[in-house]
Amino acid sequence: MKKKEIILKAENVTKYYGQEKVLDIEQFNLYQNAFNFLLGANGSGKTTLLRILSLVDKDYNGQLSYCGKEINKQESELLNLRRKFSVIWQEPYLYNKSVADNIGLPLKLRKKSKNCIKNKVAELAKELKISHLLDKNSKQLSGGEKQKVSIARALITEPEILFIDEPTTNLDYKSNQFFNELFTKLVAKGVTILLITHDLYQIEKLAEYITILKQGKIVINEHKEQVLNEGELEGNNIIGQKLVFA
């Protein structure tokens, strides 16, 4: 088992909500070109950590590094890095525009030409089988359709790191399978994924690196095989058990 390079590292990261410390991370490694899973009970700090790692939240103490270089909190540097990342939120927010405009928005923000945006949107929508939604207003979509559109919007910039927060909550089984395959293909193409999920099937099938959070602290941040070797149980049972105890 060859360990992959670390693309994003968090050291001594703490986060407070008022007086309460909700995150206390000594060290967290996000492995490059790998399927990293972030697990933990509700309220363990998964989404808080994802918001910090994706540079959406800069109100924290501690140090993040990207490819070995420390990230400072200057807006220009953060913006450059954010544009290499994409986030798929658990409850996606779509703007009050057409689906095509929503998907193309990240490219518009990067000042790409109208033609380029139009072509990329059409291409991606076809790949994700949502071409029939392009002319609809985002307010007319179901929960599952909104999630698919938000996935397309996140992928259109071809991000280096894709942060995904429980993406399958609103999706049916078939769509679930489709996106699991898609995410696997992305990793094969070199994308780094950090996925928050409670889905043991996904963990068993897709996870390469596993991080378990417990009350804001990291219990495990290792390769899945290493996690499995630590216990006597096989398959996802060991992870499931660790999760239960987390």
Binding site: V56, P106, T157
Partner: peptide, 9 residues
Amino acid sequence: DTAISLGAT
């Protein structure tokens, strides 16, 4: 959060 994560200035 959405606007920030999409890379908006």
